[in-house]
């Protein structure tokens, strides 16, 4: 298996797509090779910010703890634990999080071993002869909903309810929420994201199959319906995130047992969440649950 890098710089850094590409080798994807850490450290670019948020060690420790905690379980289980804690450790604003170079660096320069651990499929006998199971390229370098770390951070960002990470943990427990729902534009509206989690809470939706049906119905209905109007969110205020980012200097390591606390933003209005949850429930009554088999608990 791919190992933890033998050299870890003190600071996080940025790794451009072009430079990242040459290190995502076949051997790495197969989990058979390591990333040459020192060579990599020479081609990275510095972060645009400094201070506690730029420290590499807390991130690496977090990943180590995740792999340790879930060493006897399916790696997918780690997502619900890691997502809120990664989010609270990095303390990024969205502008920073939209920089793919940071995620490239985390996947190759900080924890390629985690990516392999989490995404290398177990041999299931269906591989073509001579082909070993391998990690999908997009787990190292890819869109926000496929890249190993970006997907966790964005799950936490889009499903947290103000400072409350519980909905994040709830959502990450079903892989289809990450694989299907995270890529939908509709969840950029906070009450919509919360309403979908609310259906998990209520037990209205339990399986991955049902999540996919729900996602399809919500997405189709949003083509004509403006959820933002029927279930308004509070006015956007960017200051709590800014203050939370600044508070990184005095914050300690994120708690391992309890959930951390996110930015002190106003929560999505309960009335809006409830109204949408009720509406989505109605949608689900009509929506035939079909499509490909549920992907729940399947690594990829």
């Amino acid at each position: 298996m791919t190992h933890k890098p033998n050299y870890l710089p003190e600071r996080l850094a940025l790794l451009s797509d072009l430079n990242a590409a040459q290190y995502v080798t076949e051997g790495l994807l197969n989990g058979k090779e390591d990333v040459p850490a020192i060579a990599l450290s020479k081609i990275v670019e510095p972060l645009p910010y400094d201070g506690a948020r730029a420290a590499l060690a807390p991130v690496r420790e977090l990943v180590d703890d995740a792999m340790c905690e879930y060493r006897d379980e399916k790696p997918t289980k780690a997502d619900a634990w890691l997502a809120p804690r990664l989010h609270a450790t990095l303390r990024l604003n969205r502008r920073e999080a939209a920089d793919r170079r940071l995620w490239n660096f985390l996947a190759l320069g900080v924890a390629p071993d985690y990516v392999v651990w989490r995404f290398l499929p177990e041999p299931n006998g269906k591989e073509k002869s001579g082909e070993a199971p391998k990690v999908a390229y997009r787990r190292f370098r890819g869109a926000h909903y496929t890249q190993a770390f970006a997907r966790l951070w964005w799950m936490a960002e889009l499903f947290r309810n103000g400072s409350d990470y519980r909905p994040v943990a709830r959502a990450c427990a079903i892989q289809d929420m990450i694989n299907t729902v995270l890529r939908l534009d509709v969840i950029d509206h906070r009450p919509t994201a919360q309403a979908m989690v609310r259906l998990l809470d209520r037990g209205t939706v339990t399986t991955g199959r049902e999540v996919n049906a729900l996602a399809g119905a919500v997405n189709a209905s949003a083509a004509t319906l403006m959820y933002d109007v029927v279930a308004p969110d509070v006015e956007r205020d960017g200051r709590p995130v800014q203050e939370w980012v600044e508070a990184a200097e005095t914050a300690g390591p994120v708690p391992r047992r309890m959930l951390p606390e996110g930015p002190d933003e106003e929560q999505a209005p309960e009335g809006s969440v409830e109204a949408l949850a009720d509406y989505f429930t109605e949608l689900l009554v009509d929506a035939p649950v079909r499509g490909r088999p549920a992907t729940e608990d399947i690594g990829d």
Partner: peptide, 19 residues
């Protein structure tokens, strides 16, 4: 009838809606 302005950016999944 209402009229809303919507600001979005795919790269940051940002969506701001104001009436």
């Amino acid at each position: 009838v209402s009229v809303v302005a919507v600001l979005t950016e795919k790269a940051t999944n940002a969506r701001t809606v104001v009436p």
